[in-house]
């Protein structure tokens, strides 16, 4: 897997480090010569110094063979153009743009570019006041129209010891998988939930808070 990331700062640094650790081939594109030097010294990545929205810089960075292009610069217009050029000129199969202005997340989607807004993701998590510490993973899918949440049930949960069918989950909420120890169970209505179960919950955002409260008992 070859990932091309345009941007800088700590986010870029830690993303690259984690991608490199997964064995991905990472190419960084950054405009700042000084930062490029530092990144090249600290990361196991190819560093290309230049403007990622310049077609020839993208070509130098090997966009043609990239599987994913991530544009996470502080300028939304640059992120949009980097992603569009990567897919228009170099047929990169997946491109993702950071929308610094949360309004632009929707704008980019409508212009055909996959995007995410850190502000939105963090904001949503805080809004879902229920039991943040029990949530181990939260993944928005389908442009955020569906949320996949992984959470741990503890003894204070009102659904522990009861049948899944008796946990009055709101509509549009589904317990897809229960992970118990090393076993993954696709539960049925009669399955009994236990203390320590890791539950994978699929919900629409409107009912996410209610579903979490049902499972964790948190009043919120």
């Amino acid at each position: 897997m070859k990932v091309l990331i345009a941007g800088g700062g700590k986010t870029l640094y830690f993303l690259c480090r984690s991608f490199a650790a997964k064995g991905y081939e990472v190419v960084v594109v950054n405009r700042d010569r000084g930062e490029c030097g530092q990144l090249a010294r600290e990361l196991r990545a190819t560093v290309v110094c230049g403007d990622g929205s310049d077609a020839s810089v993208l070509a130098d960075a090997g966009a043609r063979s990239a599987d994913v292009v991530l544009a996470i610069t502080p300028n939304d217009q640059d992120n949009l153009v980097i992603c569009q050029l990567a897919s228009l000129l170099y047929d990169v199969p997946r491109t993702v743009a950071l929308a610094n202005d949360p309004d632009n997340a929707e704008v980019f989607q409508r212009l055909g570019v996959t995007s995410f807004s850190t502000t939105q993701v963090v904001g949503n998590m805080i809004q879902q006041r229920a039991a943040l510490e029990q949530i181990t993973n939260l993944l928005p899918v389908g442009e955020g129209r569906v949320l996949v949440t992984e959470l741990v049930l503890d003894s204070s949960s009102p659904v522990v010891g009861r049948r899944l069918a008796d946990a009055t989950l709101p509509v549009d909420a589904l317990v897809a998988v229960v992970i118990r120890g090393s076993e993954a169970i696709v539960p049925k209505g009669g399955s009994i939930l236990e203390d320590g179960d890791r539950v994978v919950l699929v919900t629409l955002p409107e009912h996410h808070g209610d579903a979490l409260r049902t499972l964790t008992g948190e009043r919120g």
């Binding site: 929205s53 300028n75 939304d76 217009q77 640059d78 949009l80 153009v81 569009q84 704008v107 409508r110 212009l111």
Partner: peptide
């Protein structure tokens, strides 16, 4: 004077 600003604004104007 920024190409990318012009490109973004133009697309937003047309599509949105």
């Amino acid at each position: 004077r920024e190409d990318n600003v012009n490109l973004m604004v133009a697309q937003v104007a047309r599509e949105i």
